[in-house]
Design a protein around this nucleic acid. Sequence first.
DNA 1: GTCATTTGACCGGG
DNA 2: CCCGGTCAAATGAC
Length: 254
Amino acid sequence: LFKSPAPGVTRPGKSKGLLQEGFLPSPQLGLMVGGGSSETAHGVAILDAPDSTRTAAPRPRRRNNNDEKEVKLIPAPQMGNLDLPPDDGHTWRKYGQKEILGSIYPRSYYRCTHQKFYGCPAKKLVQRLDQDPRTFKVTYRGSHTCHMSATAPSAGVPAADSLPPPMSTSAASLMQAASIPLNFPAPPTTHWLSMQNVADLGGAGGPGPSASRAAAEMPVADMADVMFNSGSSSSNSMDLIFSSEKWDYEEKKD
DNA sequence: GTCATTTGACCGGG
DNA sequence: CCCGGTCAAATGAC
């Protein structure tokens, strides 16, 4: 009656694709500025929505004043031929993706999967550098209040604590920096995220052995080291970039 | 069947 | 007004 979300109006026929956001191997890793074929990348004429289906819903979306965000540059480990997305040990759920002006790659918005359960306000923005497609610019917002023993079942970390105590912000950042498994044991699944981990919480006497996840996490010495190591020998893309820092991808309008 | 991902629309600030 | 961010519904994958 009141709410009649006619199927088809809110969601116009969209072409389904097998692409996973911008994690493609970047076939056009070459130069795209030379061609000069700079388009808006939009060109998508979406159908209009005559009736605003969602008009009776006050969105108390308040903007957090605390801008505690730290930006990090994480090079995607080039295993084989594909670079996998950077994982900090947390389970992130993508809740949005938008193309940013000035960037050729869209920005992905992630949120803590446990946010709904733990209330972790941790957010994460991942964007590929237009100058370095293999480098991910990860922006962390908020602090992680939830512990993640699910994705990081390190053998040396006994998850005996049922309730994770609040950690210091410094510790959090430190952990993130040192929780980047670059040496993945080549996961059989294309997914790098594990799910269905918070199933046991009601305390219903689940004698389930759980802990089926066994990812051999390797201690990373320094992220920076890896970064530099990225192109130790051979010509580094950075050099090239620095050389031609002038990237004119800006289209000129009339 | 469940859950994460996908994608468009809308909101809100600068 | 434009840009950036978030939500919400649908679909696909597991």
